[in-house]
């Protein structure tokens, strides 16, 4: 069960590798035929110089866990999603990814009590270069301690 103790605490970073096959599969799932996600020869002719990942690809990463800070998936609503990119994700990138619960707030409506959870995620290279950050608002009806 989530409670205020978790606000602000970063998870232990997990190493994620941007794999060529995973990028192609993700682009396929969106139905995006852009060769920049698949074709090394084409990508080499672009300003990026190599295959990049679609802008929402970082949602596939493992950001680690905060033991005890888990939510039932049931009844969760994804309200908002924000990405900030310092550069595109390249195939072969090795990124240390972590998350924190940035804020939690309570609202009471006719349907009962709702909890608004704001998570932040980030991906950093092994030499400490921040590549992207994310912010995600999730709305839950699960009982959460205030």
């Amino acid at each position: 069960m989530i409670d205020q103790r978790f606000v602000g605490v970063w998870s232990t970073p997990v190493l994620n590798v941007v794999e060529k096959g995973a990028v192609r599969k993700f682009a396929d799932a969106i139905g995006d035929p852009n060769p920049i996600y698949r074709d090394e020869a084409y990508a080499a002719t672009t300003r990026f110089g190599r295959i990049v990942a679609p802008p929402t690809f970082s949602r596939t990463f493992d950001y680690g866990a905060l033991p005890g800070c888990e939510l039932e998936q049931d009844g969760l609503i994804h309200g908002e999603q924000t990405f900030h990119y310092h550069r595109p994700l390249f195939v072969g990138d090795e990124l240390l990814c972590s998350f924190r619960l940035a804020d939690m707030s309570f609202r009471t409506s006719a349907d009962g009590k709702m909890v608004f959870l704001i998570y932040e995620q980030r991906g950093v290279t092994k030499v400490g270069e921040e590549v992207f950050t994310e912010r995600m608002t999730v709305i839950s009806r699960e009982e959460v301690k205030s």
Partner: peptide, 30 residues
């Protein structure tokens, strides 16, 4: 998945932007 629709809109953006321009921020509300 909300993120599937966000991916579709992302395709519209990258079709326009990449590889010439940088995409630095992208936010949506579902």
């Amino acid at each position: 998945h909300g993120m599937l629709t966000m991916g579709y809109v992302g395709q519209m953006l990258t079709d326009f932007a990449w590889p010439l321009f940088d995409l630095t921020d992208y936010s949506v509300r579902f």
